[in-house]
Design a protein around this nucleic acid. Structure first.
Lengths: 209, 209, 209, 209
DNA sequence: AGTTAATCGAGACGGTACGTCAGGTCTTGGC
DNA sequence: GCCAAGACCTGACGTACCGTCTCGATTAACT
C-alpha cells in the first residue's frame, strides 16, 4: 500500500497502514482557541456555549469535540494560551528591583477585566472538570517555575538566604494574587505589587538569619 | 413588593390585616441546606441540580426558589453554614503557639475531602453567580476578621511589630491556603501549617525592625 | 376527583396519594396536532422537524415527547385527526348511487395537494415507526368499517350478492386509491371514482350468479 | 461524465493520452447495490446510513455519491434490482390458470420478510425523495406492463371482453397487493392470490356482457 | 366554626444547551 | 483520476435542567 523502497527498515516494524483520510486542520483548532478566548474576555463568561464558540470560530460543533473531550478542556487550553501572556523576568542587576518589577508587570496584566474574567473562569472550570484541572495545573506549574528561577537568582546574589523555602515563597506570591482575584476584597494594583514584593524580600532575608 | 400607600382606599377597608396564610416552614429551609451540603460533600459537585437538591431534601423545587434567588445562593449559604465549622482561636498565652495551632486546626478541617470539594465548589460558583460571590465575600470577611483579632493580640504582646501590614499578612495566610486548595500542587497538612506559621511570624517581626 | 364522604376510612384503603402536580394541558396537545397537520399540508413534509413543530405550536420540545413517544406517532395522530375529514355515507335509496357518491367524495378530498402529501407521509412514517404503523392501522380499519357498512346495505338491497367477498371488495377500493396516491401513475379524479364504482358493483353482482 | 467525442480537437493536440487516472470500478457499484439490499433485508430499514452502506460494501462514502445523487436513489436502485426478481408469465394455454399462477408466484416472493421490508422502504423513500420516486415509478411501470401483456392474452383468447378497462384491472391487482403490504391488515398468501385472481376474471368477463 | 390566603410537594410548561449522529463535501496519500 | 479513509460544516435528534406556573392539600391567622 505504501512504497517499500522508501523505508525498507520501517516496513518490518510497521507492516500496516498508519493513517488514511484527511488530516486534521490545525487552522480550525487555532480558530477555536482564539474564539474561546475572545468570548471569555468580552462576553459574559457564564453564557459561553459550544454553539457560540463554533459560530465565532466558523467551525462545526463536532470539530470541537474532535479535538477536546469537554468544554472545560477547550476553555482551559484557550486561557492557558491566551492569558499566558508571558510576563518576562528582567535582569537589571538588582534582584529586588527585578522581583518588584515582575510583580508589577503581572498585576498590570490583571488590570484588564477580560483577563481577570478569563482566569476566574479557568479556576471555576477546574473545580468540576478534570481536563480543565489538568490545564490549570500545567499553567500554574509553568508560572511557578518562572518565579522560582527569579528567586534562585536572588539566592545567588545573596539577597535571599540559601535555605529559603522557595516553594512557600512562590505560593505566597501567587496565593495572594489568586485570593484577591477570586474573592475581590482587595485591589490588585501597583501598590499591592510593591507591598507583596517587600513582604517576600523581608521574609526571605530574615529566614536565613 | 408594591407600595400600599399608592392605594389609600384599600387601607381604609383593610387597615389592620397584616398577613394571612400559612407561614413558611423553617424546617424545609434547614432540610434544603443540609441536603445541599451533603450532596456537595459526597456526590460529584458538578452534577448538583435543583432537582437533586429538592429530591434529597424531600421538598418541592419551588420551595427552594422561595427562599433563595439562585442555585449559587443556596449553595453558598449551605457551604458557609456547613463548612464554616468554627475553628476557634485559642489563648494559651503564647501568640506564636496560638497562631500555629490556629493554622493547624484549619488545615485539619481541610483533610476532609468533602469539605475540600465543597469549598472549591463555592469558589467556582462565585465566579459566575453574583449571589454566591456575595456569600463568599461574607464568608471570607468573617474568617479574615477572626485571624485579624489573633494577629492584633500578637501586636499587643510584642510578637509582631506595631506597623505590620495585617491585611497583607491575612491575605498571605488565606492566599496560600486557597491557592493550594484550588490548584492542588502541594499538600495542606500540619507541616504546611507550621511552615506557614513560621513564615508569618518571621516576616511580621522583621517588618518592624 | 375523589369522594370526600368516604373520609375516615380513606387512609386505610388508599394510603398513598393518587396524583399531585400540575395537570397536563390538553390545549398544548391540540396546538401540536394542529401545527403538525398544517406543516404537513403546507411545508415540505420531508423537512418536518420537532423544532419546527414546537415553534409552530408555541410549545417546548419536551412537551411533544411528553405526549408522544416518537415523531412518527405524533405525525400519525395529527394526520388521522386532520386527514380523517369524515366523508359521510349518504342514503339516497339507491345503493349504486350512494357507492358512487362515496367514492367521488373521497377522491374530491384527495384533490387537495396538502391532504395528499399528509397521507403519503403517514404511510412513509408507518414503514419505520411502530407507533405510526399502529395509527395507520387504526385509521384504515375505521375507513374500511365505514365502507363495509355501505356494502352491507348493498347486500340488503339485493344489489350485491349475499356471498360477496366484502373484505376483498374493500381492499380493491382502497387499494386502487392508495396505489395511485403513492405511485402517482394515474389520476384520482371523479372519472376514476366512477370507473372504480362501476367495477365494484359489476364484480359483486356477478359473484353471486 | 462528459463526452470525449464532443472535443475532437483535443485528441489532435494530445494524441497519445486517451485517459489518465483510474477508471471507475463497476465492481464497487455492484458491491454497493448488493450491500444496500442485504442491509434492507436483514437490518432494520430505519437505521440505514450511508456509513453503514460504505462499511458493508468496503467502499468509501464518496464513491457512493459518485454513482448516485442521494441515498434514496441508491436505495431505490438496489431494491429495483434485488426485489425485482422476475416473476415470469407462464403460457399453459389457459389464461385463467396463467393469471392465477402469476399472482400466486408474486405472493410467494412476498413471503420473504426481507423482500417485504425492502419494498416498503422503497415506497417510504419515494414519498420524500424524488430519485426514489422515479425509481419506484419505473419499477411499477415495468410490472404493470408485464401484467398488461398477460391480460391482453386474455382478450385474445376471449376470456376477457375486448373493452375491459385493463388499466383499472392492473391497478386493482397491484393496489390490493401494495395496500395489504403497507397496512398489514390482511395476509398475502396463496389464498389471497386465488381470491384476487377470481375477482379479476369475474369482473372482466362481466364487463363485456 | 368558617373564611381567606400563603405555603407545601409534585410535576407539566416554554426554553436553552448539551453531546451524538447522520448527511453530503472536501482533502489526503496510495494506486 | 479513482479509491478508502476520515476530517469538515451543517443541522436534527432526544435528554437534562432551568425557572415559572398550576394543581389539590395543608396550615394558620383573621373573621
Amino acid at each position: 500500500m505504501h512504497n517499500d523502497l522508501a523505508a525498507p527498515t520501517r516496513d518490518v516494524r510497521r507492516p500496516t497502514r498508519q493513517h488514511t483520510g484527511r488530516r486534521r486542520n490545525a487552522a480550525a483548532r487555532d480558530a477555536i482557541l482564539q474564539a474561546v478566548f475572545e468570548l471569555l474576555r468580552n462576553g459574559g463568561g457564564s453564557g459561553l456555549t459550544i454553539d457560540a464558540i463554533a459560530g465565532a470560530a466558523g467551525v462545526g460543533r463536532q470539530t470541537i469535540y474532535r479535538w477536546w473531550p469537554s468544554k472545560g478542556a477547550v476553555m482551559a487550553e484557550a486561557m492557558v494560551r491566551g492569558a499566558g501572556a508571558i510576563v518576562p523576568v528582567r535582569d537589571s542587576g538588582s534582584f529586588k528591583d527585578d522581583l518588584a518589577q515582575f510583580l508589577i508587570d503581572i498585576f498590570a496584566v490583571l488590570e484588564d477585566q477580560g483577563i481577570r474574567r478569563a482566569l476566574r473562569q479557568l479556576v471555576a472550570a477546574a473545580q468540576y472538570d478534570g481536563h480543565a484541572a489538568g490545564a490549570l495545573a500545567e499553567f500554574t506549574a509553568q508560572r511557578r517555575a518562572t518565579l522560582r528561577s527569579l528567586l534562585e537568582r536572588g539566592i545567588a546574589s545573596g539577597d535571599l538566604s540559601a535555605d529559603a523555602n522557595l516553594g512557600l515563597l512562590i505560593d505566597v506570591a501567587y496565593g495572594v494574587l489568586w485570593y484577591r482575584l477570586l474573592v475581590g476584597h482587595a485591589p490588585l494594583d501597583a501598590g499591592a505589587a510593591r507591598d507583596l514584593g517587600t513582604h517576600l524580600v523581608a521574609v526571605a532575608r530574615r529566614a536565613g538569619e
